[in-house]
Design a protein around this nucleic acid. Structure first.
Length: 110
DNA sequence: TTGGTGACGGGGA
DNA sequence: ATCCCCGCCACCA
């Protein structure tokens, strides 16, 4: 059993399929921590780049993206999402209704 | 152990 | 939509 919250966040995030996105709160919920959204954001902030975790697919509940500086530059996250086919509602909001991932079909142990 | 911190989220004005 | 405030959580000095 891995009590390591970070690892569990990475595991679920790694499962987000191309063209789909998830939110911090959703991931927290799948991990059994409905109120742990901030902790998820914290975990994603420290993702080792060599793990190839698609952290850019995790966005805000309202479809907006992370601070422009976070992914190495203005618009980087948006470009990557568009390249994967993620539908946008407008210039800076993902079309959540169509792009949110349903979530892992299996239970994520604690 | 305590306290500060932040890639959050929800509710109210 | 925007701003503000507050509760939550894991981390790290």
């Amino acid at each position: 059993m891995k009590s390591n919250f970070y690892e569990r966040v990475y595991t679920v995030t790694a499962e987000i399929p191309e063209g789909k996105v998830a939110t911090y709160g959703l991931i927290a919920r799948w991990l059994g921590k409905p109120r742990g959204a901030r902790a998820v954001g914290w975990a994603l902030r420290d993702v080792p780049t060599d793990l190839h975790i698609p952290a850019h697919r995790v966005i805000y509940r309202d479809g907006s993206l992370a601070a422009s500086e976070v992914f190495g530059g203005f618009g980087i996250q948006k470009e990557r999402l568009i390249a994967e086919g993620v539908p946008f509602k407008d210039d800076d909001h993902v079309d959540m209704k169509a792009a949110v991932w349903e979530g892992p079909l299996h239970v994520v142990d604690e």
